[in-house]
């Protein structure tokens, strides 16, 4: 999978690139509009992450250029502006998703994977992790062929955990993924624990090994080891 990150803040770009390289993505970085346009005219990417505010131009123009050349490429806009206008303009131009700074890298990762899944296989690709098979089109979860009935939040949580497999996920990032702006309503993170506990139980009831590891104090990790 090939990614292009268009972001002028070097420190942030380095974090993102490192993060995706660990996920075995080929991740390239363009610090400005000029480089970005040059890169998208030469290479083909599976997903492009665009910061809307660039020092020498607008990320929206990059999206327009990209849409003309490779309309199938997934696009996620990143903006420091939490403004509805930018969001709508970006989505109207054909962007698939929108993230506002600051964000959790795990959240970005989950979004990138979702976009690639939708773009590359028309959303029909099943997500497989060990015994677990998820059909995103039908919101169907199976463990070794047996269906597991999950609530909406448990389903979202499972997708999020698998998208960020083998990584430590903070409770904060999980809470924000599941509840967005309402995440701060949880005075403590016991609440996530309830969902995690229920999810783990439902999976293990169908014979799934315990993939969910609690990292003391930090959060959770979904891994085979």
């Amino acid at each position: 999978m090939k990614l292009l990150l268009i972001e002028d803040e070097k420190a942030l770009a380095v974090s993102i690139v490192t993060y995706f390289q660990r996920e075995n993505f080929i991740c390239e970085w363009a610090p400005d509009y000029e480089t970005a346009v040059e890169k998208i005219s030469i290479y083909r990417y599976d997903c492009v992450l665009v910061d809307i505010m660039l020092p020498d131009g607008s990320g929206l123009d990059v999206i327009r250029a990209l849409k003309r050349k490779y309309p199938d490429t997934g696009i996620i806009t990143i903006s420091a502006k939490n403004s509805l206008d930018d969001k709508i303009v970006g989505l109207n131009l054909g962007a698939d998703d929108y993230l506002t700074k600051p964000f959790h890298l795990s959240e970005l990762n989950a979004r990138v994977q979702a976009v690639i899944r939708r773009r590359s296989f028309q959303g029909n690709q099943n997500i497989v992790f060990g015994e677990i098979k998820i059909d995103p089109a039908q919101h169907l979860v199976q463990v070794s062929g047996h269906e597991v009935v999950l609530t909406r939040k448990e389903y979202d949580l499972l997708i999020y955990l698998i998208s960020n497999k083998n990584r430590v996920l903070t409770k904060e990032s999980i809470a924000e993924h599941l509840w967005g702006d309402d995440a701060d309503l949880m005075d403590n993170f016991d609440f996530i624990y309830t969902h995690i506990k229920n999810l783990r139980k439902k999976l293990m009831d169908k014979g799934c090994p315990d993939y969910l590891k609690s990292m003391y104090g930090v959060g959770y990790k979904f891994s085979e080891k």
Partner: peptide, 17 residues
Amino acid sequence: IQTPLAVIMSKIEGLLQ
């Protein structure tokens, strides 16, 4: 302010791994 905050958060996330 949001961009430096994004840097801080991404670095922490990297470190936590």
